[in-house]
Design a protein around this nucleic acid. Structure first.
Length: 261
DNA sequence: AGTACCACCTGACGGC
DNA sequence: TGCCGTCAGGTGGTAC
């Protein structure tokens, strides 16, 4: 599901396909994905414009339009981008389609329509208004220890809280805790300085590794949980059976043999 | 402040 | 074969 590494790969994909071309047509195929903007306004403000650069904060992708304002993509659970020429390649759940002056198209495909698109004038102000925490790949160790260390609940919920650190969701929080050998429900207050530092290092390592692998699970290291994160999965470290538990309403996967409370 | 639970939304899957 | 309940999970709202 689109978490920080996925969104970063989408951003790189967007950069390599859709920058510096004039948008000749904007086609909103399902209005449910629009947030605080009408079809008319979106079409009017994007037609005949150029996407000039991109940025990302957590799971949010920002696209600068004529260096003036921003188009925000949030991918929800099932969002993705596809760039193509012939309309027979138009993906099944295309909700928003751009056409460029070279005849190619960019589709925002979102099966479950939990993602959304909106226009933003001031990106930093938007991040502030949403009260998002620092981006997981931008935050430094000292800030990480301060903000995670001040939490009272479990470590998994702290890592997934976008207002604490932005970018980590259910799957990557499982991977990070797997790498450091901590139980998902371990209380943050029971963690020492060294543990927080280990979690921080694992977070950076896991996120970079996933981006380098272009989030292709078959390219992940053998020692990673994610390729084995399923019912009946086997721990790649000790052959133990991967367990599932509910943590703040999410299904957490972990290896009980080496991830203890 | 943290957690529990619900809603949004579609499609896959298991049970009968 | 086909219908139904459940689940996936990012986000946001409400209740405790």
């Amino acid at each position: 599901m689109p978490e920080l590494p996925d969104v970063e790969v989408f951003r790189q994909y967007f950069d390599s396909t859709s920058l510096n071309k004039t948008v000749t047509n904007v086609n909103v195929k399902n209005t449910k994905i629009l947030e605080d903007v009408s079809v008319k306004t979106l079409e009017k403000r994007l037609t005949n414009r150029v996407f000039t650069e991109t940025d990302r904060h957590g799971k949010n992708m920002f696209v600068h339009v004529d260096d003036k304002f921003w188009l925000l993509f949030h991918f929800g659970m099932t969002g993705e981008l596809k760039y193509f020429r012939d309309m027979d390649e138009d993906p099944q759940h295309d909700r928003l389609l751009f056409t460029f002056d070279n005849g190619y198209h960019l589709a925002y495909d979102c099966q479950r329509m939990i993602g959304h698109v909106r226009l933003i004038d001031d990106k930093d102000k938007y991040i502030q208004q949403k009260e998002l925490g620092p981006d997981a790949l931008e935050v430094n160790l000292s800030t990480f220890k301060d903000i995670i260390g001040s939490k009272r609940g479990g470590i998994k919920s702290a890592l997934m809280d976008q207002n604490t650190i932005a970018g980590i969701g259910n799957e990557y929080s499982d991977e990070i805790l797997f790498q450091v050998g901590l139980h998902p429900k371990k209380k943050v207050t029971d963690l020492g300085d060294d543990s927080l530092k280990e979690i921080y290092n694992a977070m950076i390592e896991v996120l970079h590794t996933a981006i380098d692998a272009q989030v292709d699970l078959s390219q992940f290291p053998d020692s990673y949980l994610l390729p084995h994160r399923e019912k009946g999965g086997t721990c790649p470290l000790n052959g133990g059976k991967i367990q599932q538990i509910k943590v703040i309403g999410r299904t957490a996967y972990y290896c009980p043999d080496h991830q203890q409370k």
